[in-house]
Each structure stands twice: as structure tokens, then as C-alpha cells.
């Protein structure tokens, strides 16, 4: 199954502030692509454009799945989830007053995933055993790491083909960050996902990246064809390693 995401020359912003200036990114089927950049450079805006939360002013975004091409601009987030793209939003955005199980069930609104809710719940609990123990607990009462697991679990309930992850490391202790990153790799391999991850934490992100882009002031400043490519680059050093 080929699921490819193409972002072509997208311009977007909020009101009169333009954030993205002609950004082009592609994510090939089965790849893990990271979007690197510090705060305020447009990572989240780009992810939100793909998800239909922010509407681009110009440019095209499409999904190529099984030889068909779906234009994503102009679709609602719910319709985009129906196409098999799901977002793990920045800051997790759980439903704090609802239970862990209810949060997971809310990920299963997608029609194609409804029939297999029980199986998918089981898969989520297998991947994240603490969630099973806390099934009836309010989501807001869990620790940050558990909440991030729940956010990923909720996204998996829709059986996505493409997983967008926005800053999974936000607000987590360093040891939890590497655990979450390792989990993402494991799930990606087990469930044949295509992953686009926005992240500030270069050293962690690079561990699972096949490729990556560095985004600076709303433009793609550098495209790394491989993880090694990113690691050896002077610009990366300048921006991230401070040498």
C-alpha cells in the first residue's frame, strides 16, 4: 500500500501574519520523516495545514494512496482522518474530564475503524500496558508520559496509514522522551505506518528518522536525504549543536 504525502509550495499564516513561505515537503510510503526547527518556525502550522485545521493561502497538499490522488486542501479534519491520516497533536490535547477508555473510543470515529474497535483497543493496551490499568481513570489525572501514550493510542484507534506527530517531547522528562520515541519506531514498524514528526529535540528525533527537513522562518532551509546527512551538516550543527 503506497501512501505518499505531498506538500507543494504551501503558503499559510494567521490573519495578516504569514508563517509558511512556499514550503514543499514529501513523505514517501513507509518512511519516517522528521521536521526539525526551533519554536516559531512553522512546524506546527505545516502539520495543521496537512490536517485541515489551518487552510493554506496558496499551494497544494495531497495524499496519494493506492494510485489515487486526494486533494487535502478544503477538506475538514474529520474527512482527512477518514482518508487515513491522523494527528497526535502538540501538547497531547486529550479530553481531560473523560476516562482513558472514552478517550481511546473517541479516536475510533472513523468509519473504517468502527468495526474493529475491540481489536484496536486490545492492540493499544498491548502497546501501552499502563493504559489498561488506568482504563477507567480520568485522562487529566495521569502523568505527562502516560498522557502522551494515550494521545498516540487515541490516534492509532483510527487505524491510520499516515501518522502525523507534533512535538511528542513537549513537557516530558528526558527519559520519557526517549521511551516515547522508541515506542513510535516500534509502532511504525509493527503497523506499517508512514510517519511525519515535527520535533525540536534533534538528538532524539534523529534516532528514528529516515530523512528530514530543517525549517527556518517558514522556509525549508535544508533537506537531509538521510539521517547521516542531517547529522553531518554544518547548518544542523549551527542550529542545533551550537558548534
Amino acid at each position: 500500500m503506497a501512501n505518499r504525502i505531498v506538500v507543494d509550495n504551501v503558503e499559510a499564516g494567521y490573519g495578516t501574519v504569514q508563517v509558511l513561505h512556499g514550503v514543499s515537503v514529501t513523505v514517501e510510503a513507509g518512511e519516517t520523516v522528521v521536521l526539525l526547527g526551533s519554536n516559531g518556525n512553522g512546524k506546527s502550522t505545516l502539520i495543521n495545514c496537512i490536517m485541515g485545521i489551518v487552510r493554506p493561502k496558496a499551494g497544494a497538499i495531497y495524499l496519494e494512496a493506492d494510485g489515487e490522488r486526494f486533494d487535502l486542501v478544503g477538506r475538514t479534519p474529520a474527512q482527512i482522518v477518514d482518508l487515513g491520516i491522523t494527528l497526535v497533536p502538540e501538547g497531547r490535547r486529550l479530553f481531560p474530564a473523560l476516562t482513558v477508555e472514552e478517550n481511546l473510543m473517541l479516536g475510533a470515529f472513523r468509519k473504517e475503524a468502527r468495526a474493529r474497535i475491540e481489536q484496536n483497543l486490545e492492540t493499544c493496551f498491548e502497546a501501552f500496558p499502563p493504559l489498561r490499568e488506568r482504563k477507567t481513570q480520568q485522562a487529566g489525572s495521569m502523568s505527562g508520559g502516560e498522557q502522551q501514550m494515550l494521545a498516540i493510542g487515541r490516534a492509532l484507534m483510527s487505524e491510520p496509514k499516515v501518522l502525523l506527530i507534533d512535538e511528542p517531547s513537549v513537557g516530558l522528562a528526558p527519559i520519557l522522551v526517549s521511551r516515547v520515541i522508541a515506542k513510535i519506531r516500534e509502532l511504525k514498524e509493527r503497523r506499517d505506518l508512514t510517519v511525519l514528526m515535527a520535533e525540536q529535540n534533534f538528538n532524539q528525533a534523529i534516532k528514528i528518522a529516515d530523512r528530514g527537513y530543517i525549517i527556518v522562518h517558514g522556509e525549508i532551509a535544508f533537506e537531509g536525504k538521510s539521517a547521516a546527512d542531517l547529522q553531518d551538516n554544518d547548518m544542523v550543527k549551527q542550529y542545533y549543536l551550537g558548534v
Binding site: P77, A78, V81, L94, A97, F109
Partner: peptide, 22 residues
């Protein structure tokens, strides 16, 4: 459950694929 999600966090509900308008 979908309505409760809208009450808690409408944007998150949309991200999760809940058809909020409907």
C-alpha cells in the same frame, strides 16, 4: 461521547476525527 469531546476540547475532537459540525 463525541459531544462530550466537543465540550472538553473542540479542536482536539476534530483532530481525533470526530465530525464536530455534524
Amino acid at each position: 461521547r463525541g459531544l462530550a469531546a466537543i465540550r472538553d476540547d473542540e479542536v482536539a475532537a476534530e483532530c481525533a476525527g470526530v465530525p464536530t459540525l455534524r
